[in-house]
């Protein structure tokens, strides 16, 4: 007998009570002003926030920073940065600019997908990370977030809520464990 059938049979032979799957009720937000709550949460997560009008404004905000534009990757076709990269070039990326689809006020997490992502590691391998998110795509909590996305639409998707971090050495919080050392959230109209 295959391991699959032995496992399935073992489970099937156990006498089990029927348990209903509960319905998940609607949960209200923690404040009346979700934008203010989101901004406050990002600050607590050590995230820098830039507020602008549109995606096209991003280069303007980046010009004073020391990024080499050849070492910037982006998912946005309208931005003048790299759209594709070879495996060997990944490590030199200074900044990844990702397209945030849904942002969650309660925990600061933003959903990104592998759409126009030439290598999936670009979510973490860049020295720094910028996620652009429209104000219109802000929801309260994870229940609302999952109601607004379809997780199997993309082969790979993730919620990101700050720079990579660890506290594995004596509980001291250190940013930049394996992934990006900093996160900028660009909020546009």
């Amino acid at each position: 007998m295959s391991s699959k059938s032995s496992i399935i049979d073992a489970i099937r032979n156990i006498e089990k009570e029927e348990v209903h799957l509960p319905r998940i009720p609607y949960f209200e937000g923690l404040s009346y002003d979700s934008t203010a709550f989101f901004l406050d949460m990002l600050q607590r997560l050590g995230v820098e926030v830039i507020q602008g009008n549109s995606i096209e404004d991003i280069p303007y905000y980046l010009q004073e920073r020391e990024f080499d534009s050849k070492k910037i990757f982006t998912q946005f076709s309208e931005l003048p940065y790299r759209k594709t990269l070879k495996h060997g070039q990944l490590e030199s990326i200074q900044l990844s600019i990702l397209n945030g689809k849904v942002a969650v006020a309660e925990n600061g997490a933003i959903w990104v997908t592998d759409e126009r992502l030439s290598n999936r590691a670009l979510t973490v391998i860049g020295e720094h990370l910028l996620i652009a998110i429209s104000k219109r795509n802000l929801v309260w909590n994870m229940h609302e977030a999952y109601a607004n996305i379809s997780i199997h639409e993309h082969g790979y998707g993730m919620f990101i809520s700050g720079p990579s971090k660890t506290a594995d050495i004596e509980q001291s919080l250190v940013k930049g464990a394996h992934g990006s050392k900093s996160l900028i959230v660009f909020i546009y109209e």
Partner: peptide
């Protein structure tokens, strides 16, 4: 923490 930094969803290989 309100959520981990990364919550990664895998559905299909590249």
């Amino acid at each position: 923490q309100p959520i981990t930094t990364y919550s990664s969803h895998f559905h299909r290989p590249k």
